[in-house]
Amino acid sequence: MLVAAAVCPHPPLIVPELAGAAAPELDELRAACARAIAELRAAHPDVLVVVGAAPQTRVYGGRSAGSMAPWGVDVRTGHGEPTLPLPLTIGRWLLDDDPDRFQAVAADASPAACLALGRDLAAEGRVGLLVMADGSACLTEKAPGYYDPAAPPYQEMIVRAIAEADAGALAALDPGKAERLWVGGRAALQVLAGAAGEGRYDGRLLADIAPYGVGYVVGVWR
């Protein structure tokens, strides 16, 4: 069963070596992620899994490595040659420790596939998930996906679902609309929904910012 989950975003600029003189909101974001992970660890899960989107669904071992070299600085985390995609690399960097494993989920996976994957993860005992999930990148005219008037209400729906531990709302996210609004974390959030199932959790929102027109949300489910 899922005993706890932390939701964190995965912007490369959360790594200080890449941020330079970036927005001070990133300091707030790092601190919120640290608090979320501390609460996740405080639940003492028997199995800790980092979940994030990737080109394909696959498992990486808990000692797998990632690098920020594609984003300008070869900051490495983990052990050995880098193999992790960006969301899982940032997850490993935030943990500063090895999880039991990394679970990549295809960014275009269907909701049914994501929910089934989450149910499978939750069946492994007392499971904790670190869910790496960016929100919409269409929140302002300077956002990577430019501004879409449908993005703010969609982002608000995601924020509310995380804050209220509403697995049903996450399960209902439309993948086509999420893709159009550049919601990088849709698949990972639906894995969380599958892991939560019909369970009841207390949700807590720790951060909700969008300094570059991209929604970055941090929350905890216990």
Rank of each mutant, 00 (worst) to 15 (best):
C114W: 14
A207V: 00
R92N: 01
P9F: 06
Q56L: 02
P175Q: 10
A196F: 09
R41V: 00
A207G: 04
R41P: 00
I162S: 09
A109W: 12
P211Y: 11
G215M: 12
D120K: 13
A31F: 09
G78Q: 07
I90C: 01
R30C: 09
E124L: 08
D108Q: 00
V3N: 06
K177W: 00
P111C: 06
L2A: 12
V3G: 09
Y216R: 08
D134C: 12
R63S: 15
R92P: 04
L29C: 01
T89S: 05
D148Y: 01
D134M: 09
Q190K: 14
A109C: 08
A54N: 05
A163G: 07
A150T: 04
G135P: 12
G91L: 02
V183C: 13
L84C: 00
A169I: 14
P149G: 13
A54V: 02
V59I: 10
G197F: 13
G194F: 10
A163P: 03
L130P: 00
F102P: 12
A193F: 05
T57A: 10
P149A: 13
I37E: 04
Y146L: 13
A31L: 15
A31N: 15
A207E: 07
L40N: 00
Y212E: 01
Y201P: 02
G66S: 05
E81R: 13
A137E: 11
A161G: 09
D98R: 06
V105I: 15
H10C: 10
A195W: 10
P153N: 08
V47P: 05
A172Q: 10
S110A: 08
D120N: 07
P152H: 14
A165R: 10
P11K: 03
G118M: 05
C33F: 14
G176Y: 09
Y154L: 09
L173D: 06
L88H: 09
P16I: 04
D108F: 05
E156Y: 08
G199T: 06
P149L: 12
G194E: 02
A123K: 07
M132S: 12
G118C: 02
A22Y: 15
A133V: 03
D27V: 12
V159I: 11
T89F: 01
F102M: 06
V75Y: 02
L18W: 14
I162Y: 10
P82I: 02
A38F: 14
M1G: 09
W182G: 07
A43R: 03
D208V: 11
A193P: 04
E25A: 13
V51W: 03
V127I: 14
E156H: 09
S64W: 03
D120H: 14
V218D: 04
A6D: 03
L192F: 05
A107T: 00
L121M: 08
A69Q: 13
R30T: 07
A171E: 11
Q56C: 00
D97P: 01
A133K: 06
V51T: 07
L18I: 04
E124G: 10
L95T: 12
V59C: 08
D74H: 04
R101E: 05
A6L: 06
E164G: 02
I158C: 10
D202T: 10
Y216M: 10
D166P: 07
P12A: 13
G91A: 01
P12I: 08
R186Y: 08
Y147F: 15
P12C: 09
V218I: 07
C138F: 14
